[in-house]
Nucleic acid binder design. Structure first.
Length: 567
RNA sequence: GCGCCCAUGGCUCAACGGAUAGAGCAUCGGACUUCUAAUCCGACGGUUGUAGGUUCGAUUCCUACUGGGCGCGCCA
């Protein structure tokens, strides 16, 4: 049982007792209302129950607090409980309670802090990035990659059943434009005098694809009709871009359970109906569609949208929104309890109509859109727009090449998603104190080094060394130094951290936590020598260091950042 | 004009409605013959954009402003 749960039970016991003997004039027992004091001077935990109940109980908060403190049942968790300020009850934990956290981490390893979310909505579909397969990903996609992936990891650790999904926009007219762009470059390379039309993809990567086709297959497409050539190249380019994206994302540590092709929504079943047909039919049945100006509209204003939205254009083509509607309908049909989409802030205007469509289907509130604010790319404080190599927008891949996966992920994740990021390449590349990812990793590597030293061996992994060096039944009671206690208190925070980070879809909290944990370890390391102390102390401290190592590695893994054993 | 996000030390950011608003960077001053100095310790630095409101208590919630980012297609 976690310390918090034990403490809650203790406080609840006192509250119940106070009510029973009339000291607290309340009908129902209020919640224990435990929180972490910001200032450690105020103890390890505090209850605000006295202040919260004062009005209802018609009593002075400090008197209520006293009544509760007087009735705390006997236990071995609370070292002291004192009343402070307007009516806080400040608890200090016993050293043995704190030491229990070290044992818990050493027992549970990477399962520590694993939760089971009691609330509903457990089966979650998380869709993110969903970049068009018509070109390389940019820096914004990098942020969504880091955010979505880490969010999935944290939510899984908290107990959610998360399915990660990438929606491949492989159906719209932009695909034809893409195919045509490649075709133009191809013909140009073969000496034809054709011009790249407006609205086409002019990027150098398009010419690269065309050149690749010539290298592999020569001029065999030269004789085809424009239409045939466009179609052929559309597919070749599509596969290449999709492969590139997948390869880069894997390298970045981001993988998906499902790559959902938009084209699937248009595949007809035995009855000649596609998913889009069926979604439209359902909407029509429910009475939310109407015809006007030759187009078919969705009456999203019924659900608070600014204006109704076109689903079928006057020329008979479907809009992007129509696909998206069918796509989200498909997600519902697949049995998810909750749909989370991560979008760039520039798409926020799209939220209302999507919420409207969810409501039209009878699932109001099922869709949750996480908006990520945009990323500005800088170099030495100056805005960067152009890549040195290609002269075009700096791609996500170039960024990872230059900065590395760990630093990129960490920096992308270290801010709340509704905070804009100025990503300075030169700052990100610095391997010093200004770059917190190395501060955290260094703490981890430092612990591994201690384990190697303690074992007198260089070759084995940290896990092997820890198993060898730290006795399984190690007595932790020597851990009483203030630096040791502070470190253990921070470890005890982890369980709550996971709950909060998962609930708020806010993995950025883990970066702050990792830095705090690393900082407390560095202090402990500075203040408390480990190797060469008397055996009881050395063993206890090795256990503490090892638990710290485990927790640092776990936190970093939830961020998708590596935990190196040497630096 | 309407909508979404943001505003906290010089800079980048924290703070489930809680106590004297915290870190890191930068600046200044200390600590390596001792387990990794990619580290640690100390100092300096604030009227939380403005004005109201809600309450035992507001950086946090509400309203109105100011300033900045983004968006308001029968594009995708």
């Amino acid at each position: 049982m976690q310390i918090r749960e034990q403490l809650e039970a203790i406080v609840n016991g006192a509250i119940t007792a106070a009510i029973a003997d009339g000291a607290l004039a309340l009908e129902e027992a209020p919640a224990a209302a435990l929180e972490r004091p910001r200032d450690p001077e105020n103890g390890d935990w505090a209850s605000t129950v006295a202040m919260r109940s004062a009005k209802l109980a018609h009593a002075n908060p400090r008197d209520i607090a006293q009544a509760i403190v007087d009735r705390l049942p006997a236990n071995d968790v609370v070292k002291s409980a004192e009343i402070a300020g307007p009516g806080f009850i400040n608890f200090r934990l016993t050293e043995s309670a704190l030491q229990g956290v070290v044992s818990a981490i050493r027992d549970q390893r990477d399962q520590f802090g694993r939760g089971t979310i009691a609330e509903g909505s457990r089966k979650v579909n998380l869709e993110y990035i969903s970049a068009n397969p018509t070109g390389p990903m940019h820096i914004g996609h990098g942020r969504w990659a880091a955010l979505g992936d880490s969010m999935a990891r944290v939510m899984r650790h908290a107990g959610y059943d998360v399915s990660e999904e990438f929606y491949v926009n492989d159906h719209g007219t932009q695909m034809d434009v893409f195919g045509n762009s490649i075709a133009v470059r191809y013909m140009q390379l073969l000496g034809h005098d054709v011009e790249m039309p407006e609205q086409c993809y002019g990027g150098a990567y398009v010419a690269d694809i065309a050149r690749g086709i010539i290298d592999a297959e020569g001029d065999k497409y030269e004789a085809l009709s424009d239409e045939e050539r466009m179609l052929a190249f559309r597919e070749i380019g599509y596969r290449e871009m999709l492969d590139d994206q997948r390869t880069l994302l894997e390298r970045f540590g981001t993988t998906f359970d499902c790559w959902f092709s938009e084209r699937n929504l248009y595949v007809e079943d035995a009855e000649g109906k596609s998913a889009v047909d069926r979604a439209l039919a359902v909407m029509r049945e429910r009475g939310y569609l109407y015809e006007a100006d030759g187009a078919t509209w969705f009456r999203s204003t019924d659900f608070g949208d600014d204006k109704d939205r076109v689903l079928i254009k006057a020329n008979g083509e479907l809009t992007y929104f129509t696909s998206d509607m069918a796509y989200h309908y498909d997600k519902i049909c697949r049995g998810f309890d909750r749909l989370i989409d991560i979008w760039g802030a520039d798409h926020h205007g799209y939220i209302k109509r999507c919420e409207a469509m969810m409501e039209a289907w009878g699932h109001p509130g099922m869709l949750e859109v996480v908006l990520g604010q945009l990323v500005n790319l800088l170099r030495d404080g100056e805005p960067v727009r152009m890549s040195k190599r290609t002269g075009e927008m700096v791609t996500f891949e170039e960024l990872v090449d230059e900065v590395g996966v760990d630093a990129t992920r960490y920096l992308m994740l270290s801010r709340s998603s509704d905070q804009m990021i100025d990503f300075d390449i030169e700052v990100a590349k610095k391997q010093d104190a200004s770059n917190p990812v190395y501060y955290v990793q260094y703490a981890h590597a430092r612990i591994c080094s201690v384990l190697r030293k303690a074992a007198g061996e260089e070759g084995a992994s940290a896990d092997e060394l820890a198993a060898r060096v730290v006795p399984g039944d190690v007595d932790l009671s020597p851990l009483t130094h203030e630096s040791e206690l502070a470190l253990m208190r921070k470890m005890d925070d982890f369980v709550e951290l996971i709950e909060l980070a998962a609930r708020d879809r806010a993995p950025f909290r883990l970066t702050h936590y990792a830095q705090e944990l690393a900082g407390l370890f560095h202090q402990f390391y500075t203040n408390c020598h480990i190797i060469g102390e008397e055996p009881a102390v050395q063993n206890a401290r090795l256990a503490l260091a090892d638990a710290t190592r485990t927790l640092l590695a776990l936190t970093l893994s939830l961020l998708g950042v590596s935990a190196p054993e040497r630096m």
